[in-house]
Design a protein around this nucleic acid. Structure first.
Lengths: 239, 239
DNA sequence: CGACGTAATTGGTCAGACCATATTGGTCAG
DNA sequence: CTGACCAATATGGTCTGACCAATTACGTCG
């Protein structure tokens, strides 16, 4: 994320998200921002395009106005998560809850719509999770691969776009938490076997129940990692 | 959406979405695009920022490369829906399925987390739907208000951002379909009463069942409207 | 105090220049 | 013929400065 226009955009985004400017308030003019960042006005304008697309500002002749974060686009999530060494616990949990609900939906649609080949492919991805010899990180990679394959085989574009956007924004935060993640391998193994059965038999009810349990396990695991990270790093340390 | 840079962005987006450029292929250079659109290069650059933020291209020294639509951001939806007088039936149905799942999730979270005041407010919004005297459009407005209030009272930011993004992008397409929408008012009235009960008693199971039925009704209504629009306008007419 | 007009400010666009990085095409050796 | 290397060209990133359209701010008048 180099480039002067990207750096200016990041900086303005953080200013807005930390409350330096309030909704409806006007940002400094492009000329003033160009002077502040020792840049040309065209570079500032490019940065402003990014902020506008993210939904944080509304650029109009007469000045750019700040909008409410609640009205931003989903792409604002990564910027919210980038505030502090330990990401916002509530936000991460909410994201995981949403992602899991969407993947559960994708799984159901896959059982109804996907080809046998597609389901078999997902089953090959589930198989390693039914064994004991995965490291914590390999296990995470396997879970991710299963999720992605389920989304893909649902052939539901909005689902795919949302989950991909969320994954991509959450991944840096999650990667930072890997040292604190402890996976209950046995429990996941049992659930992986049920998952495999539901795929083999296209059993929607079993899939729902199983995925619900996987979701709960995912979230518990992450909450524990976040708590451990807070205890280790401290809640308010900022980068 | 005026402004030269926005018009250029729109035009390039449609070119990409209609397959004029393929994933990994390089777009024409900024200088070539500036000549083509009789614009300055800085305006073309601003248009390109928009495309990059939407996730349709990857701008690098040496040229901008087209990315797969499946890897775009959620903001691409409105551009997909803007292709043709009658929006893509499958895409609209998928969006509605996703929105309804998310609102159902929001409703459940609201029953658990929202204040009594918040739930009472939602009930005042549900009340008009329990009566007979709403026009089709008033009914749509009422349903929308209920949905928005539930999302807000769930206090779940990712949910809010996703659904707001989807609403905002689908709304123009839905507005065009209003002449074709026929609401089953009686059925909605019965479901509105159940919804009210579930809110009053914070009954999560009743809420789930009820909202599932409301979702089905919403989708059936929309699919019928889309079919009527296709029969009236024709499937391939383009704007 | 509110309405109106004018001046100043702000965004939108333009032209042209220079630098850093990537691409392309030609040549040479194995 | 193929792969490696190099130079020329093309492309994006940024800059300066100018002009026009739209908005904002301020002063005056009723």
């Amino acid at each position: 994320m180099s480039g002067k226009h990207n750096q200016i955009a990041d900086n303005l985004i953080q200013d807005i998200l930390t409350g330096h400017y309030h909704p409806s308030e006007r940002l400094p003019s492009e000329r003033d921002l160009a002077a502040r960042y020792a840049a040309s006005r065209s570079v500032v304008r490019e940065a402003m395009k990014t902020l506008q697309q993210i939904g944080l500002i509304d650029v109009q002749p007469g000045g750019a106005r700040v909008r409410d974060v609640d009205d931003a686009s989903l792409d604002v999530i990564s910027h919210l998560l980038a505030r502090g060494h330990v990401p916002d616990v509530i936000l991460i949990d909410q994201i995981m809850a949403v992602v899991d609900k969407l993947i559960c939906m994708a799984a159901e649609e896959s059982l109804e719509l996907a080809s046998d080949e597609e389901l078999d492919y997902i089953r090959t991805l589930v198989r390693p999770m039914m064994e004991d010899d995965l490291s914590q990180e390999q296990h995470a990679v396997a879970r991710f691969a299963v999720m992605k394959a389920m989304i893909k085989s649902s052939h539901n574009l909005p689902l795919r776009l949302i989950s991909r956007t969320l994954f991509e924004q959450v991944e840096p935060a999650k990667t930072n938490l890997y040292p604190y993640v402890v996976i209950d391998i046995d429990n996941y193994r049992v659930l992986a076997e049920k998952l495999d059965t539901s795929l083999k038999q296209r059993d929607v009810d079993l899939m729902q129940v199983t995925y619900q349990k996987i979701s709960e396990l995912n979230r518990d695991t992450m909450l524990r990692a976040l708590k451990a990270a807070r205890a280790d790093i401290g809640p308010e340390a900022t980068s």
